[in-house]
Design a protein around this nucleic acid. Structure first.
Lengths: 154, 154
DNA sequence: CACAATTACCCACTTATCCCCACAATGAGA
DNA sequence: TCTCATTGTGGGGATAAGTGGGTAATTGTG
């Protein structure tokens, strides 16, 4: 599982070197095959090991192609899911249209989220983090918690 | 299975070069035979490997020719289904009436959707994607999710 | 049968991708 | 503090992929 965040740089060719600690595992468990797609709600990309992505794909496949909302989800996620294989030096090439969507510049933040990574532009990540913390503190005690959060213990 | 999207160009003769990574598979499994037809709801084309299309054809055959809606489905899908075989350099020729229906210009977006590809004009695809994402974000938390989507976890 | 229109094959060119090597930065151990 | 190994970064160059267009083959039509 992936956790923690890493500051990396995107080179002029659009390549991103994955942290060395994950390379062996990604190679042995997924032949270095990764899937990168866009996030629905935030300006970032999602990076899945192939096996993890295939589980998502199965769920997507079972959605109705006639229900507009489900169709939309299929189209956004599947339509942007790009196969990004690691090269021999542990880098992946992010296609231009994905970089553009997430507003990626040179400085990148790679964020581990258990079964996947999120790929943020460093500046956007900082802004979002600050905003999220402020929101959380401002809301403390005042806003209704969802059922799942009621029982959440750190 | 097909996933991800590819930016390609349609040349003056109406030819489209399929991504090299799929050519071998399409040749060995379907002798390079593909079927292209129009989409029911969106301004795009659908491109099936012959074997996949034949499954659709069976389903269409079992529909009633007396029910107007089912008859319509048959007519639209079957009536526009065109055999597009790959040439020796991995390109298919899209007939003019199909290109016209999808409003295809020079810049094309080929989108993998598991058992088929969608063929979009690049600009139309961008517009649709932007609109879909906006809809998705506007709805976040406010709209009732279908049962299947309730359990959907990325 | 001749002609035009369309389609397919071939070759040439440009662009993008991947492999490789080099260098810089970092951290560990002696 | 010096040395060495590892990791991240940059870029050259071989190779493959995508694109454009000439020409031959095929098809359909009058």
């Amino acid at each position: 599982m992936f956790r923690g965040s890493f500051t990396l740089t995107l080179d002029d060719k659009g390549r991103l070197a994955l942290p060395a600690r994950y390379r062996d595992r990604l190679l042995s468990e997924n032949q270095g095959q990764l899937i990168c797609t866009i996030d629905l709600h935030d300006p970032c990309l999602l990076l899945f090991p192939l096996a993890e992505w295939e589980e998502i794909e199965e769920k997507l496949q079972s959605l109705s192609s006639l229900n507009p909302q489900e169709r939309r989800l299929q189209r956004i996620l599947l339509g942007n899911a790009t196969e990004c294989d690691m090269d021999k030096s542990g880098r992946i090439l992010l296609p231009a249209f994905l970089r553009q969507h997430a507003g990626l510049n040179k400085n990148i933040r790679l964020v581990g989220q258990l079964n996947k990574f999120e790929i943020w532009d460093e500046a956007a990540w900082q802004d979002r983090l600050t905003a999220d913390i402020e929101l959380e503190q401002a809301q403390a005690g005042s806003v209704e918690l969802s059922e799942r959060l009621q029982d959440f213990v750190l």
